[in-house]
Amino acid sequence: MVPTGYYLILSAIIFTIGAVGVLSRRNALIIIMCVEMMLNSVNLTLIAFARQWDNLNGQVFVFMVMAVAAAEVAVGLAILIAHFNLSKSTNIDDVNVMKW
């Protein structure tokens, strides 16, 4: 039986890799992928705690996080395509349409 702390450390490492990707990459597609990775690492934490406390609420929460992640990636990619039609670029530094 692997202790819960090992899962938490692994989840922290994956979350950090995703955060570093969001901070350092400039391609909006890869930023969306990194956000998905961060959501998944939090899911791993919730499931590990659900096992530790023998409580199913954590797994129910993960189910809802999956629904929100699916909605988020659909809307995010739609915004990306709409902006690509406008500026022919996926660079996040070119996204300044709402700046005045």
């Binding site: 922290a12 950090t16 570093v20």
Partner: peptide, 16 residues
């Protein structure tokens, strides 16, 4: 980004 990530990982690892 890498420096901020190392700081965040250290904080989380310390908590765990």
């Amino acid at each position: 980004g890498l420096a901020l990530g190392v700081v965040m990982l250290a904080g989380m690892a310390l908590t765990v």
